[in-house]
Design a protein around this nucleic acid. Structure first.
Lengths: 232, 232
DNA sequence: TAATAATGTAACAATTGGGTAACATTAAAA
DNA sequence: TTTTAATGTTACCCAATTGTTACATTATTA
């Protein structure tokens, strides 16, 4: 079973640099695509969806800053890592670079060995933080992340108190399944604590207040469920 | 705990210039040594191993070009930054200067303020492009450097005590992940030592005091996280 | 339809958890 | 050693979270 290669896009108008980077990246086992200007880079990024972009700032047709901005607008590229390659004289653009969503920049001349170790380190860290992804429920427009205790509704981060979060998380784990109040109490509050069943109602209400009332449905006489019926 | 000073060597046969530079550099917090000719400069460089050399081109005994060439032959000086100081009439030597490995040159008369900001900018760039990437976390406006136990917030260097640094580093390694007090104690203090969980709170407070309170978020009943939600 | 049961809602009370300061202890520097 | 900085502990206070109750609203059924 071959390991999945990380995808890297190199964008630079100097063909020498492109080739040096391609050579070194492929030697490290990355899957590389290249472009010679920002516009072409953007086009390739749309289809290739690289995890890392190495991009020159000064380029013909479309410069790196503008290209970067547009790459960031591609939904799948939101979490990609973008590194600018910059000549010494171009320092001015540092601020602009970070403004459009670059993650790092390196100053030419490029030292391939150092750059490779930097890139490897980046992916190593990425990997480490992927471990948390098991705790994430994506459902409809919601992302419910147990490792960070946050709820994302589209691009909005909502912070829920502990009980409310756990209630939502528990329900969302099994969409459409109806849970009685006792089950919820036992699972979320614990079977030893004694709180009134009506407490659940109040928490449901509080959750609804924050996520919108249509997602948690009441099944009269039975309990509650996280319902995805009328969601896309 | 004083910050580690960068080492700068000044070589010029005009004592006035040496003193002006020394005064300004020391005011900026650099550790300065000086010499009045290229030969002496070379000798000092061998022992002092400065990170930056400011060197006049026209000097008695050994001129700057030759001195620079030999400095570059010192293994530890390969990656030092060497700036030539040149009178306007000496422009011819520009080519020779870069040939022997100079990185930059400035034309006399020296404007101390401008030169200082140039030097400061150089060290900032150096910092951001450090070779030994493994121990460095760049996140938002923070650079957290484990190899020197320092924290940089934009251009400001902040020194954190050990525990505080490690707490910050640990949290920043996995941004947004919530860690309980026990996890933090186990990871940072070690699983064998016994300190109270509340100790974590106090250290969190001390870190917040230094980096600003908005970055480490409390998740009540759960723990703490380094939160990047409202940062660019 | 009225009567009844179930749930929604708001206001309030109780509790828990965390912030903070002050102090105590330990380690490091001078 | 003395002095200073770092770390750990404790106690008090405040505020968010949570739980409870009373009442309003809605659904269900006779």
């Amino acid at each position: 079973m071959g390991k999945k290669k990380h995808k890297v896009l190199v964008v630079d108008d100097e063909q020498d640099i492109v080739e040096i980077l391609r050579y070194n990246l492929e030697k490290e086992g990355y899957e590389v695509k290249t472009a010679n200007d920002g516009k072409k880079g953007l086009e390739i990024a749309k289809k290739f969806l690289p995890e890392l972009v190495l991009m020159d700032i000064m380029m013909p047709v479309m410069d790196g800053v503008e290209s970067c901005r547009q790459i960031r607008d591609i939904p799948e590229m939101k979490s990609a890592y973008i590194i600018f390659l910059t000549a010494r004289a171009e320092e001015y653009s540092e601020v602009a670079a970070f403004d459009v969503g670059a993650d790092d920049y390196i100053i030419k001349p490029i030292k391939p060995r150092a750059l490779m170790s930097r890139i490897n380190a980046h992916f190593r860290r990425e990997l480490k933080n992927k471990e948390n992804e098991e705790d994430i429920i994506k459902i409809g427009k919601f992302i419910i992340d147990r490792s960070s205790y946050t709820l994302h509704i589209e691009d909005l981060q909502v912070n829920l108190p502990k009980k409310e979060f756990e209630l939502l998380y528990f329900l969302a784990e099994s969409p459409n399944k109806v849970y009685g109040r006792d089950e919820l109490l036992a699972s979320i509050w614990g079977s030893d604590v004694y709180v009134l069943a009506r407490t659940v109602d109040v928490h449901i209400r509080r959750v609804r207040e924050k996520i919108g009332s249509q997602y948690i449905k009441t099944v009269k006489g039975v309990g509650y469920k996280f319902d995805m019926a009328d969601q896309v």
